[in-house]
Nucleic acid binder design. Sequence first.
DNA 1: CATATATTACTGACCAGTCAGTCATTAATG
DNA 2: CATTAATGACTGACTGGTCAGTAATATATG
Lengths: 225, 225
Amino acid sequence: MEDSHHSGATGHAKTTARRRKEARPGELTAAALALFVERGFAATRLDDIAERAGVSKGTLYLYFDSKEALFKAVIQEGIVPAIEAGEALLNAFRDDPERLLREMLFGWWQLLSSTPLGGIPKLMIAEGGNFPEVNQFYFDEVITRAHRLFYAALELGVAKGVFRPVDIEAQIQVILAPLLMLAIWKHSFACCAGGEVAPQRYLDATLDLILNGLRQPGQKENTDE
Amino acid sequence: MEDSHHSGATGHAKTTARRRKEARPGELTAAALALFVERGFAATRLDDIAERAGVSKGTLYLYFDSKEALFKAVIQEGIVPAIEAGEALLNAFRDDPERLLREMLFGWWQLLSSTPLGGIPKLMIAEGGNFPEVNQFYFDEVITRAHRLFYAALELGVAKGVFRPVDIEAQIQVILAPLLMLAIWKHSFACCAGGEVAPQRYLDATLDLILNGLRQPGQKENTDE
DNA sequence: CATATATTACTGACCAGTCAGTCATTAATG
DNA sequence: CATTAATGACTGACTGGTCAGTAATATATG
């Protein structure tokens, strides 16, 4: 198990093989994410993932015990940072609930357009049922945390009198729905859609509806900077 | 090769075998729908579908050319009537846009709770990508028609001055999202969810947000009958 | 040569789709 | 009505291909 008597310290670059060993898991999960999102979990072959990562299938098994373990790693690695980014936003905009919601929506869109992470919701919806353990993990680590995030945001708005007093718990899901559908749409029907609504316009409409739906009747429009 | 001289017309019931032949396709698509929704298209074996319908796999091929053809039949048969029901609602409540929206939401929920049809959106999202032809069919016959339906409803409301003048095209998608997510949720994470929001409460919240978000500022609350 | 890293060829389970054949019902014949 | 012929719905064993996972082998590193 342990090693450590190298005589002279060879402290310089561990050269290729050693460096590879540290980079590999990330390269593999990245390749897997891209392919899972594109074709679905079941329809993606391990050979393809390996090829995309520039290794052979056998190598994959040096880093992950099974296809399911790889699946779980993909979710874990991809989503947790995203959730943390959201939690950071909450702290940054504590004093302006409308602005906070706006930032959360656009942050989400940023993620969607610049990374393949937006494919994860679709992936979980599509294949989660066949992998209870991964599903549970996703539920606990992603869904629940995301809910807490939005709960805090809405609660803040209601407490400050910016939003009407609503059924926060239920509204969260209503507000999250358009965000999730935006992601799902992109990975499901975007291909078929001809003259469909552009994401930017869709997001504007979402914000419009949500803010008008939540806003305290007295409150003025807040035309933003 | 040729037949046709039966002398007397034997026109009455052709008993079991003949009756079966007419009932079979429906029985098979029903079985397939249930299993596809439960496990996904790829993960469902034709043997299981056949067994559930009380026949053998070979029989299945007497009625459908391939697994994909069966898939398409399931969608076609299940969804088209649902869309037509929606179109009927539109005509029934032309004069009261708020009521119309309300009826459409609750009609949808009715469908969800009393039939497995609510599983179809999830199914299409999950597996549509691998079946372009089915996907296109769904897009044209379901998504597009559903959009037209909601377009008409919103347009009516705006024309009557009940709703604010909004970006109708974009709002449709925002409004549809919670409905779709309700269906998706039921078939994906309902299992994991412990103290989650009840559908009825969720629907109320949806209506609350949508109607408040759309309502013309002047308009009064309309506390319904 | 000992260890860590990677590859390649292989195995076994699984499943969509096929096909030769069964069996129950119906029609034809005397 | 009894016997034979024809029909067609249905069956289930089989095949051909795919793919997750394994094991034997190779290459680099210290």
